[in-house]
Design a protein around this nucleic acid. Structure first.
Length: 347
DNA sequence: CAACCGTGGCC
DNA sequence: TGGCCAAGGTT
């Protein structure tokens, strides 16, 4: 019988190979008694939900420069926060980020809860983020389970059952390894291992600190795990977006409804999106001309968006004129930015 | 509990 | 180039 993977071995590897991140207190500083700022840990963990470290870095730096504390963030304008989040995706995170900041600043004296249960009660904080903040910011012995941890556990314990059905079993196995000492560093160590060595493809088993104890490696099935249920195909939806420009340079924009796709984000007025272009009327009277098509893939469908453009100063039936000094293309979510770039190409 | 919810990088 | 994938949460 092979030994169970040793958390101490992984911590020793982490002490040598921990990656630098703007929000991270490295193992050396942590050992010297430096504690992370819970606000920065929470902010980074929300940004990292389903998002790569590379994509998060600059967003994290901008957010902490603009809003150094949770109270600063709580006092920010909604539109400013949504605009800074533009491009990062999953915009419900930004809406919940603000809600959470306002609860912490307004009801909790600006201090984040240190327990998993206390954190779980906050908007946008689920099982993963609650455990991560509790472990990383407060060094509590919580088990952090994300996609990396599931993959690593499926391999070291050779779990053949496919995801997502095996989630509970993988979480149970992960909990058996969580150490009482340095649980925060350990949580980051498993995730670093999954991100750099025990990757989905092209694994680096040869340099893995847990190689000797990995059941999948021993059975030669590491690359096949974790198994996953097959995915369904993405349907295609079509729609039309209208980009109206006033002679003074203002653009006709609208803030999308709070809930649903791209909720709370800036966008262009247009039709709904459906299998075929739904019946609709343009948001303002004008001589519209088609400037092209934008294709964009969302999580569960593909979009083909026809882009119309016109100059007019008529009174719109939908949307609001945004003057050019207030309009920032970077505030637009990606598909809306693609439409803008097509209608108003950079010189 | 399955569906919904973005985006960029990688091979 | 298109499918796959990432430090998930909400409903």
């Amino acid at each position: 019988m092979r030994d169970a993977p040793d958390p101490g071995v992984l911590l020793a590897w982490y002490d040598m190979h921990a990656r630098e991140m703007p929000w991270r207190i490295g193992p050396a500083a942590r050992a010297a008694g430096v504690w992370p700022d819970p606000y920065r840990v929470w902010l980074s963990e929300v940004m990292l939900q389903q998002t790569t470290v590379a994509a998060v870095r600059d967003y994290f730096r901008r957010f902490t420069a603009l809003w150094p504390t949770v109270s600063d963030l709580a006092a920010a304008e909604d539109a400013a926060v949504m605009g800074e989040w533009a491009g990062l995706g999953y915009y419900a995170r930004a809406r919940n980020l603000l809600k959470c900041a306002r609860v912490v600043a307004g009801e909790l004296g600006g201090r984040f809860p240190d327990t998993r249960e206390g954190l779980l009660a906050l908007p946008g904080v689920g099982p993963y983020t609650a455990a991560a903040v509790s472990a990383i910011a407060f060094d509590r012995p919580e088990t952090v389970v994300d996609g990396n941890v599931e993959r690593v556990m499926a391999r070291v314990f050779a779990v053949e059952a496919p995801l997502p059905g095996s989630k509970k079993e993988l979480a149970r196995l992960a909990a058996t390894l969580t150490p009482a000492e340095r649980p925060g560093d350990y949580a980051q160590a498993v995730m670093d291992l999954g991100a750099t060595i025990c990757t989905p493809r092209s694994l680096a088993c040869g340099i893995c600190p847990w190689m000797a104890d990995c059941a999948a490696r021993a059975q030669g099935v590491a690359t096949d795990l974790p198994r996953k249920a097959p995915k369904s195909v993405k349907p295609v939806r079509r729609g039309v977006a209208y980009l109206a420009r006033r002679p003074d340079g203002a653009w006709l924009v609208e803030t999308r409804p709070e809930t649903g796709l791209l909720g709370g984000m800036l966008g262009w007025p247009g039709s709904d999106w459906a299998t075929s272009v739904p019946d609709h009327v343009p948001p303002v009277a004008a001589e519209w001309r088609e400037v092209g098509e934008v294709r964009h893939t969302f999580t569960h469908f593909q979009l083909i968006l026809t882009i119309m453009k016109a100059e007019t100063d008529a009174v719109p039936e939908r949307g609001d004129w945004m003057t050019s000094d207030r309009f920032r293309p970077s505030d637009l979510p990606r598909v809306m930015r693609k439409a803008f770039d097509l209608a108003d190409p950079a010189p």
